[in-house]
Structures are given as C-alpha cells and as structure tokens.
Nucleic acid binder design. Structure first.
Lengths: 367, 367
DNA sequence: CTGAAAGCGCTAACAC
DNA sequence: GTGTTAGCGCTTTCAG
C-alpha cells in the first residue's frame, strides 16, 4: 500500500527522461506527480471505465480484470481521486465533525474513538472548531461546502434553522451529547436525567443532608437534565432541595471557584454534584488545596462523564460513566440510517449511564 | 460534445419558475442549498466564467459585476464547490493532520490551536489517527488521496520513504514536535536538548545529588534529546550521571509505575526529570499517594510541555514550557513556504523552551 | 472585461 | 464484460 511510482521506466517511450523517471503524469517543474485512472488504462490497454469498475464494489467486472487493474495500480501508485469521484457520486465519504469545547478532556477522548470508528466505516474526518467565540452555526456553512455524508456535532447546540439547512443540503446532522428539542436534529445522549437521579439516590442513601450542584454552561441539555434529575429525585426522597451554584462553564476553573463560594455560605453543603468531571476535579482541588477539606470525610464530590483522569489516584472521582463506545456506535448507526433514508425521521437516542463509585464521595451510610 | 447541453431551449429570458418562487434556493435565511455556479449565472444572465471570476482573488472582473454576483450568491445561498475547484486548481485548501497519541493532553491543545489558525489561513483540516496499533505510514496513503496542501504530523515519526512519497505527490510534510534526521521532512520542535540542560542546571543548583530520568517512548527525538541534554549537562556540572528508568510510553501509567521502581532502589533519587508532563503527573501521583512521599521535600519532580493541567494546584508542576503558539506559527509558515516553492529545502526549526518554576520541585538551595 | 470552449479525474448510463 | 459517451461543478485559456 505504501508504494509510489518508482520503477515504471518503460511506460512512456516518447519522453526523454530528465533524471530519475518520475513515472506517468509527472510534472517535473512543480514536483507534481499524480497517477490517474487513464494512466492505468493505457498501461493495461483497457478503458478508464474498467479501471473505475475495478475500484467500485458491486461493479460488473471480471475478477481477473479487477485483479490485473489492482496490481497495476499498486505498481504505479494509483489511488482514485476522491474529489472527482464525489463530484459524481454525490457521496463525499467524509464526516464533518464540529467541536466546540476541546478544553474538556471528555471530547478529545470521544474525538479519537469517533474518528477511528468512522475511518473503519470508510469515512474520513474533517474537523471544524466552533467556540469559544465562534458559534456552531458559523462553522456549518463551511462544513456544508464539503457536503459531508454526515455532520456530527460534539458538545454544542445549534439553531434549528441550521439543522434544516443541513438537511436541505442533504447532510444529516447528529448531535453528540446534546439535543435541541424540536430541532429535528438526531441526537445521541447519555441519560443525563437518570444520571442525576442516581447521584441523588446514592448521596441521600449515604446520609448526606445538604446537597449542592455546580452547574456548567447554562442552557445546555447536559447541564439542565443532570440538574433536573438530581433535584427531582431529592424531592422524591424528602431531601432538602440542593443549592444550585452557577459555574458558568464546563471548566476546571468553574469548579474551582464555585466550590469556594459554596463553602463560604453560612450553611455549606456536605456533598456536591458537579455538572461534569472537569468541574468536579476543579472543585476537588479547591476543596482540598485551598480550603483544606478532607474528601470525602468532610465533603463528598461527584462528577459526570468518567474521563480517564477520574480514575487517577489523585482524584479517584466518583462519577457517572457515559457509555461512550455505545454512544459512538449509535451515532454512526443513526448517521448511516439518515443517509440511507433521507426522508426518515431523526431520532433522539438516550443511553443509560452508570454510577462509578470511587473515593471522592462517601456513599455508604456511616455508622 | 461539450458540456453545455442541458437546457439550450428552455433557459431563455424569463424562465417561469415552477411552483415555489425563488428558484433553486428558497431558504435564503438558512444559507445553503445545492446551488451551482450555473444557477447564479442564469439568474444574472452572465456566464459561469464570470461567476467563477467573482470568487477568484486577482481575477480580472469589473468590481460592480463581482458585487452583483456576490449578492446573488448570498441571496441564493451559493458557495463554490471545493472539490470541483480543487480538481482544476490542484490546490485542495485542505491540511491533513495525522495524530498519533491523543492520550497525551498536549496534543488536543495543539490540535485545537492549530486547526483554528489553519482555518484562519483558509485551510480546512482533515484528521487522521495513526497509532496506537496504526503506524503513521499507514495513515498517509489515505491522506495523500485528498492531496492536502500540507500534511502535518503530530507526535509521530514516519519513514523517510513516506516523506519522499509525500513530496512526490506534491504534499509538503511538516513534523510537529518530532524530527526524523535525514528524512527530508520539515520539522518544528521545541529545543528539547536545551530543555533537558535547563532542568539539569536548576536541579543541580538546588543541590540535588541523585537524579533520575523517566523516559517516554523510546526512539523518539523528544525523548532522546531531552535525556541527552539532561545527562550531558549533569556531566558538565560534575553531577553523578542520572539513573534512566524506561517508562516505555508517554502516559500517566508509565510515570506512575516507573517512579515506584525508581524509589524501590537501594539508592533512590531525590529528583526526577520526566520525559513529559503526563508522565510527571503520573509520577507525582504515585509518589504521593502510593509511596507517601512529600513533594518536593522528599522528592522533586519536573516535567516537560506545560500542559494546562500542570498549573493545577493539585500538581503545580515545575516543567519546561513548549512555545506552542510560536511553534504553530512556524509550522504554518514552513508549510506555506514549502507549498510555494516545491523545490525548496525542508528546514528543521527549533524553538527555545523555558523552565516554569512551580511547586513540584525544590529549586532553591536549602539552607 | 466577458463569454465560449476545453477539460480536471472520475462514474454512470447505454450500447455492443 | 467492456468500451463509448456524457457529464459532475468548476477554472482557465483564448477570442472578441
């Protein structure tokens, strides 16, 4: 697969070779050497169509012809030009991924797995960064230029007009870890609501009396659903309503500063549920290093995501694990479904999360 | 024969629009539909060439014509198809980025800044993941298919054959944070050798007597250069040669386990220089949580990179800061230079790093 | 300054 | 099964 046209000297009898033979279609001046289907066709004395067919699944072509073409291609270093191809097929074999917040370690992890899985499916990834400062909607026209077979939006909201525009352009959109109700965009999420409930339950069962929530970016479904589940379950269990402290964003600093405000209150909480892991880690650091608190003896901290850092001994963070791999599979499936059936109704998928008990929260009833 | 044969008859003066009025792009607000240059041309009664010229810098076209075209384009939601364009211009306006190790938080940070800066330059990013398990060389043929205007390789080595293949295909390669001597690939690195020297100097000056180095991935220039600078400077300063402990990879776990082996020795070190930050953080965690050591009183730990985590209070890691932004600018400049002058000699750029003194190392002479 | 014509490299009918 | 013929949407000579 690594071969490049090297020793194909005999191919072109007419041209006086300047130095080492660059093979067919070489442009010595620019350094450009791109082997085309025609080069292969001429080399083999077949038509370009035949060469094309050799590289098309389910094309009618004699097996031995295909083999011959593949060999020649290998030898001369030919690969079909995906741009020319997609001009006709109207399939770009490209997935456009929009990332809003790479600061949160959850997303590099997702991005890596997602891209890899996409590659396995034959889709290459084009990456677009939105915020901060750049809205998702702004990144999308550029993305749409490339008419990707699917647009996957990580950690960001988008306007329903934009979703409509994408669909009009034939590009299905799948939101990952967000949903925009009524937008018509497909979405794949962890069950944030239930995750919040699980945390409330575990914390209440362990006898925590005064609960708090450190919020992330307002108006995001992840943030509000986790909170809603948490609050609602507290109410059901007869636990006093949690204090809600605005973090403002899903960042380390948000958690770091919020926890200090929280513990400054007359009546500080004995357990804090954070909108996500990176907030929780910030909170943990501030609690221990700045406030000198012993975790979990004096304060329990719970996160959400289960990023790899959560398992590090320094943090040993109790958290709700998002089923990332399942979410990725679902995302890819949904994308393929939407691509295959352009008229299909976009679906919102919700996958269950699971509370991972580590050391940052006291979760057994103390005796 | 030639391409224009579709509506020779029907496309006369005022074509009566069938049904919904505005023609090909009803949703002006949403900004996109599959509108082609021809739609604009017909709408305006000009030729496709003119439309094309309106979107080409330095093309000869009347300013008011260009304006007219732009307005129509805006109104109908037209954007040039980059694939069709690049078929002719042989410039894809795409940067191919190969990432090997996203586990190391240094790279998401780089990736984000790099992609953003590239976007500012008018280049979109295609992302390819190599290892673990997938070699860089394997990712490159796929990348080359898209004939990106530049290939940027993060954190990975590649064979010089592959570099040659890329150049032959007209794609300049810039290695970021690695170099492969004699490969002919351009490279942008922090001065790892000097970084190692700086650490040796600071550690020696503070009176540390027994030094150690936790190595990362063997045979990478980052790893070996940092070590070389460290060892060499120690020798010059008359400090006993550092113990070298193999970590095996640039990971948290590598640091975590290596430090335990190191401290298990008869004659354990009192200062450890780690091949990068994430190793150092693993080492720090193991030293404190597993071995119960007080840092920096009983053990100094120094990293390399200055990832954002290094500044967190839990770690407060003393480390050598890589000049990431300058490295990115250099990378982009070098890429553009190589693209503009295909025959130009690829250069290896080395930018100075700086030791950031935080709390994980005792760097003043104790009294 | 603009339009007509000729492709870029490829796939997709349609013949044979 | 394979070749021939039309384009995909665009840029680019080359006339005028």
């Amino acid at each position: 697969m690594t071969s490049i046209s090297k020793d194909t000297a005999a191919a072109d009898p007419s041209s006086p070779d300047p130095g080492p033979d660059p093979g067919p279609a070489a442009d010595a001046a620019t350094g450009w050497s791109r082997v085309t289907a025609r080069d292969i066709a001429e080399e083999l004395g077949v038509s370009v169509s035949t060469v094309s067919r050799a590289f098309t699944e389910n094309a009618v072509i004699a097996p031995e012809t295909r083999e011959k073409v593949h060999q020649a291609a290998e030898r001369l270093g030919y690969q079909p030009n995906p741009f020319a191809r997609s001009l006709i097929t109207r399939r770009s074999k490209i997935a456009g991924i929009v990332v809003a917040d790479i600061t949160n370690p959850f997303y590099p992890e997702v991005l890596a797995s997602l891209t890899r899985r996409l590659q396995d499916t034959g889709l290459q990834t084009m990456l677009f960064f939105a915020g901060p400062g750049r809205k998702t909607d702004d990144a999308l026209p550029t993305l749409l230029q490339y008419s990707p077979d699917v647009a996957i939006v990580l950690a960001a909201t988008m306007s329903s007009e934009m979703v409509t525009a994408c669909r009009a352009a034939g590009t299905p959109v799948v939101l990952f870890n967000r949903y925009v109700p009524g937008s018509g965009a497909a979405a794949v999420c962890c069950d944030n609501f239930d995750g919040g409930r699980q945390v409330a339950e575990a914390l209440a069962a362990a006898g925590h009396r005064r609960l708090a929530y450190i919020a992330g970016l307002p108006d995001t479904s992840t943030n509000t659903d986790r909170l809603r589940g948490f609050v609602e379950r507290c109410a059901q269990l007869g636990v006093e309503a949690p204090i809600v402290e605005e973090g403002g964003s899903f960042t380390y600093e948000a958690g770091f500063t919020a926890v200090k405000r929280l513990m400054d209150r007359r009546n500080p909480p004995d357990a804090i549920f954070c909108a996500n892991d990176i907030i929780a880690i910030g909170a943990l650091d501030a609690a221990r290093r700045e406030l000198g608190l012993s975790v979990p003896r004096e304060l329990s901290v719970v996160g959400f995501d289960d990023i790899s850092m959560a398992a590090w001994p320094s943090y040993s963070l109790t958290t709700v694990r998002q089923p990332v791999n399942a979410m990725i599979e679902t995302t890819i499936d949904e994308a393929q479904r939407l691509l295959a059936h352009p008229q299909a109704q976009a679906e919102e998928h919700t996958l269950p999360g699971r509370l991972i008990r580590r050391g940052s929260a006291r979760l057994e009833e103390t005796t």
